[in-house]
Simulated scan of single mutants.
Amino acid sequence: MSSLQNDVILAVDGLSVDIATQRGTLHAVRDISFEVKRGETLCLVGESGCGKSMTSLAIMDLLPKGATRRARRLAFAGEDLSRAGARRINALRGDRMAMIFQEPMTALNPAYTIGNQLVEAYRLHRKASEAEARERAVHLLGKVGIASAGERLGQYPHQLSGGLRQRVMIAMALMCGPDLLIADEPTTALDVTIQAQILRLLADLQRELGIAMVLITHDLGVVARIADRVAVMYAGQIVEEGPTAALFGNPRHPYTRGLIDCIPVPGRTQPGGKLGVIPGVVPSLVGDVRGCSFRDRCAFAREACAAAPPVHRAPDGQSWRCILENAA
Rank of each mutant, 00 (worst) to 15 (best):
E151A: 15
V239D: 12
A77I: 00
A133G: 05
L247N: 05
R88Q: 14
I323E: 02
L209V: 08
A98M: 01
L153H: 02
L215G: 02
L164H: 05
A131L: 10
D80L: 09
V36H: 09
D316Y: 06
A314F: 05
A246P: 08
G115C: 13
L153N: 06
M60V: 12
R225C: 00
M169Y: 00
E120I: 10
L153Y: 00
A84F: 02
I278S: 09
L180C: 07
C292S: 05
D13L: 03
L15I: 08
G24H: 09
L62E: 04
T25I: 15
M60Y: 06
S82E: 13
S2D: 12
A20M: 13
A149R: 03
V192R: 01
T68Y: 06
S293Y: 04
F76L: 11
G273M: 11
C43M: 05
M54I: 14
E132T: 12
D95L: 00
A203S: 14
I182G: 04
G51E: 10
R252C: 11
A227R: 02
D18V: 03
R87N: 11
P266E: 07
Q195I: 03
K65R: 15
L42K: 06
Q195P: 01
I170P: 02
A84Q: 15
V45K: 01
G163I: 01
N326W: 00
G287T: 11
F34K: 08
D204T: 14
L174G: 06
S148C: 06
E135Q: 14
S3C: 00
G242V: 03
G210P: 03
A58M: 06
E303H: 03
A171L: 07
P104F: 06
L10A: 09
D95S: 14
A149G: 08
V277R: 14
E35R: 14
W320P: 11
V12H: 04
R87A: 15
L26Q: 03
